[in-house]
Design a protein around this nucleic acid. Structure first.
Length: 893
RNA sequence: GGGCAAGUGGCGGAACUGGUAUACGCGUAGGUCUCAAAAACCUAUGGCCGUAAGGUCUUGUGGGUUCGAUUCCCACCUUGCCCACCA
């Protein structure tokens, strides 16, 4: 069936989940697109594979089965038959001999086989840490299946639950999954979503010793440059050290209570609601900032996540919004250590009656605002700062001070006796600055100057500079003062590394994949539990491990699988087995695989299909991979598309496939919405059934309308009237066969060649809507010219991918054979004469037909001779004459 | 809150790297055919002024760059999608 001389093209649709409600008009949009595209590619001479199959394991079939007391296998069988029947009505060119079904034991034998490979490589492991659990679906969920704290499938708030489960180490492939995205021809937003999901971040681990103890707290930060601004450290409530430290602290009860409380919070409460931050200090425990030896408090707070980084963070309220909020609430000191670098300094100028606005302007100083007559908010360029200081030193009134804030913070105090004291805001000067400022203002509140700036009364003028999460220039950071954030991150971490208190590190948001489900309708995990040997893989020759046919398969909800219910004899017979290693008695793994397992490799299964069997042969697989074009919904951006990339890379490492990625080019299909503009769903009652439409108009007009409705990747509202237009058009085309067709007509050469070019480009770029517009226009044009045989044959070929049924009928009638996709002749594309517009002062006033290669001088003459142009220009002088050949003439008067 | 995408007639939408905005389709109006209706076909169809010729305004809002902006830049408004305490 494949021709060695031709190039291969593998075009793949995301295979559907055969739901009970059947197809609605939204489903075939993607299928129609690949149908058009593959017919086009075949005419261009490619070997094309375009298969279809069924992703049939999973909850919907099982839930439906439970509700209606029909076995899931039966449900699936009926649904598949119904889906296939509906699809066939669309006349799509699928390779049905490659049809796959994930629930076929011959199929899932290989799904289990791949699991064994994962297991052998140590990429599948058993664990009993807390995971996401959906109380309604009664099963554990992967991180990717939790959307905003809710189950992706049913919308129930997920709980944290400790259950035994199988986990796949997808994190081991995080870097490769990230890096290889660059080579893929995928929509940018989808790549971006995967990048964000993997969430690589480069930072530093920093070790805080605990005072009078051997324990140390290791924190993860991406902002080591802000270390001097750290005023406390925070442990997540789950952090192991909490249990130890709480005993040594003065308020153990309070801490216990807090931990208990946050344990009871669901993920939704802890994150989604963005509640006010809470926490408890470990009183009496002090951590030591390794960069400067400062003692800082230690807190437990559940705004820190236990599973990310080290489960502990350093809090820098000046340069982190969460820490800032927390510091405000619990009244913790805020120390700025990075200042935004704009190149300017800011100052409030007071006590400077002798300094005029002109004095300042001479130094290029900007007076931002004059809130009161004796106060000026000013911005001083870096270059003027020395002169500004001179001015202040000379003219500031006694008993006042001036400070300016930028890459440094400088205070200039003018004492009563006229003596000037200049102090930089640095550790050794801070006490002195606070003392003087309090004295000068007779302030007895004991507030520090920084508190004053950042407090309630402040207007944010300095805060913009001092309390920013942006990168900037370090201040208040000893030897690192003046460095940029980027340099300082490096230098500070390097210094910490010398004393064993820190190092560079990388973290990912991506978490390992919770792979087991406590449900019946899935692939059994091919593992046995032997009392003597422990966890043992089923040997490959014993695959598949068949899913036993049982009558009762309701989920238990207690974290065990329905397949562990030994009171059912059918289950007991399956469950009790022998250990492949020692031959002793053993029990089968009762968890099943998640819905995603079967879809992780189905694109390979199509290539393996031989009759009803699947055979893994590299020479049958490699010539087709990676998939050349994959079309499906964007909703799978981080689930299916990430999981199958992971599996594919493992298969590559196993030398079972030859490519590093499964899907080279991806195009996402926009959802078709109901007439009311919302997603079609049974419960809303806005579902449009395609069957009656096909009956009334036929498959061609419906398919064409699916593509004509709008840009392919954008969502589109269904309109019941739209098909009529396509139907009318096709009816007109059908009449070609009745009309007089001449043997040739030169007038048609230009339009038909232009059509070849445009339609070819548009199909190639999935711009089907404009391809169809072009076909309609071309048809109308040639119909007025009258048809000739060559044009009719080309036109019908161009139309054939869109309306295969109709075109076939017509071509038989007029006795043509369609074989190859036409190529345009460029000599008929470029016209020798063009009509272009003449603009006067930017407004179109006239049109002129001229030769495409006419010289500018001649064009100018022709244009200025025209009565219409004369009447617009009148006596005015022509300032400019612009001529862009083939585009426009623009006259400015 | 952050990221991304998008705002064009009554509606779906078109417009290449800045060059005649509203292609194509739907709908609507008038007409042809018909005893009548449906279907089909033909004509017209962005708003305003005008009998007309023609003029004038118009691509979410407000600015800017340009001979010229739906397209580029800035600010704002609206909608959709994704992520959401990831330190």
């Amino acid at each position: 069936m494949t021709d060695k001389e031709k190039k291969n093209f593998y075009c793949l649709d995301m295979f559907p989940y055969p739901s009970g409600s059947g197809l609605h008009v939204g489903h075939p949009r993607g299928y129609t697109a690949t149908d058009v595209y593959t017919r086009f590619k075949k005419l261009q001479g490619y070997n094309v594979i375009h298969p279809m199959g069924w992703d049939a394991f999973g909850l919907p079939a099982e839930n439906y089965a439970i509700k209606n007391k029909i076995h899931p296998s039966k449900v699936v069988e009926e649904n598949v038959a119904h889906f296939k029947d509906q699809l066939n009505k669309f006349d799509l060119n699928y390779d049905w001999d490659r049809e796959v079904n994930t629930t076929d034991p011959k199929y899932y034998r290989w799904t289990q086989f791949i699991f064994l490979k994962l297991f052998e490589r140590g990429l599948a492991y058993e664990s009993e840490t807390p995971i996401n659990f959906c109380p309604s679906c009664k099963t554990g969920l992967a991180n990717e299946e939790v959307v905003g704290g809710k189950c992706e499938r049913c919308g129930t708030a997920v709980e944290r639950k400790n259950i035994r489960q199988w986990i796949l180490k997808i994190t081991e492939y995080a870097d490769r999954l990230l890096e290889d995205l660059d080579g893929l021809d995928w929509p940018e937003p989808i790549k971006e979503m995967q990048k964000n999901w993997i969430g690589r971040s480069e930072g530093s681990n920093i070790v805080f010793d605990i005072k009078d103890s051997k324990d140390r707290i290791e924190v993860y930060t991406t902002r080591a440059d802000t270390l001097y601004g750290c005023t406390w450290v925070v442990l997540a409530p789950e952090h192991q050290l909490v249990n130890k430290l709480k005993v040594e602290s003065e308020n153990q009860e309070e801490i216990d209570e807090y931990i208990q409380k946050s344990k009871n919070k669901s993920d939704l409460e802890r994150t989604e609601l963005q509640k006010e931050k809470t926490g408890v200090e470990l009183k009496g425990i002090k951590a030591i900032n390794p960069i400067n030896g400062q003692e800082v408090a230690v807190w437990v707070a559940d705004y820190v996540l236990g599973h990310y980084g080290t489960g502990a963070v350093m809090a820098v309220p000046a340069h982190d919004e969460r820490d800032f909020e927390f510091a405000k609430k619990y009244n913790i000191e805020i120390i700025p250590s990075v200042v935004k670098s704009t190149g300017n300094y800011r100052s409030y100028l007071m006590g400077a009656e002798d300094i005029s606005d002109q004095d300042l302007e001479k130094l290029d100083i900007i007076i931002v605002q004059k809130p009161e007559s004796d106060v000026r908010k000013i911005e001083i360029p870096k270059d003027s700062i020395a002169k500004y200081e001179e001015l202040i030193t000379e003219k500031l009134s006694v008993g006042f001070w001036n400070e300016y804030v930028g890459e440094k913070i400088i205070f200039i105090f003018k004492h009563k006796d006229g003596q000037v004291e200049r102090l930089e805001y640095k550790n050794e000067n801070i006490d002195r600055i606070n003392k003087l400022s309090a004295e000068f203002t007779n302030d007895t509140s004991g507030k520090t100057i920084i508190e004053d700036w950042l407090g309630e009364g402040a207007d944010g003028y300095y805060q913009d500079y001092l309390l920013s999460t942006d990168y900037g220039i370090l201040i208040n950071s000893e030897e690192f003062d003046g460095l940029s954030s980027v340099d300082a991150k490096k230098k500070i971490t390097e210094k910490l590394k010398e004393s064993g208190h820190g190092d560079f590190t990388v973290n990912y948001k991506l978490r390992d994949w919770v792979f087991s489900r406590q449900r019946y309708w899935g692939e059994p995990i091919p593992i046995v539990h032997c009392e003597k040997c422990g966890i043992i893989a089923v040997s490959e020759k014993d695959l598949p491990v068949l899913l036993p046919h049982v009558e009762k398969y309701e989920p238990t909800g207690d974290g065990t699988s329905p397949l562990s219910n030994e009171s059912d004899p059918a289950i007991a017979a399956w469950l009790n087995t022998t250990c492949p290693k020692c031959g002793g008695s053993a029990k089968r793994e009762t968890n099943t695989m998640p819905q995603w397992a079967g879809s992780c490799w189905y694109y390979i299964a199509y290539l393996m299909k031989q009759g009803s069997d699947y055979v893994w042969e590299r020479d049958k697989i490699d010539p087709w991979l990676p998939v050349d074009l994959y079309v499906g919904g964007a909703e799978h951006a981080v689930l299916h598309l990430l999981y199958s990339r992971f599996w594919h890379k493992v298969l590559y490492d196993e030398k079972l496939v030859g490519s590093i990625e499964p899907f080279q080019k991806l195009i996402s299909v926009g959802t078709i919405l109901g007439i009311d503009g919302v997603k079609m769903s049974k419960s809303r009652g806005n579902v449009i059934d395609p069957d009656p439409l096909i009956e009334k108009f036929g498959s061609d007009p419906l398919k064409m309308y699916e593509l004509y409705i709008g840009p392919f990747s954008q969502p589109a509202k269904w309109s019941q009237n739209g098909i009529v237009g396509m139907h009318r058009f096709l009816q007109k085309v059908e009449k070609i066969s009745d009309a007089e067709i001449s043997s040739s007509n030169d007038k048609n050469l230009v339009p038909i060649n232009k059509a070849i070019k445009k339609v070819t480009e548009d199909i190639e770029s999935f711009s089907f809507n404009t391809a169809i517009s072009t076909l309609i226009e071309t048809f109308d044009l040639i119909s007025t010219n009258s048809w000739d045989k060559p044009s009719a044959e080309i036109f019908l070929t161009l139309l054939s991918p869109f309306a295969p049924k109709m075109v076939e009928q017509v071509s038989q009638k007029i006795g043509m054979q369609m074989s190859v996709w036409p190529e345009f002749d460029s000599k008929f594309i470029a016209d020798d004469k063009v009509t272009i517009a003449i603009q006067i002062n930017g407004k179109v006033r006239d049109q002129i037909e001229i030769a495409i290669d006419e010289l500018e001088q001649k064009v100018k003459e022709l244009v200025l001779e025209r009565e219409k142009i004369k009447s617009w220009i009148l006596e005015a002088k022509i300032k400019k004459f612009i001529y862009i050949p083939g585009k426009i003439i623009s006259i400015v008067v």
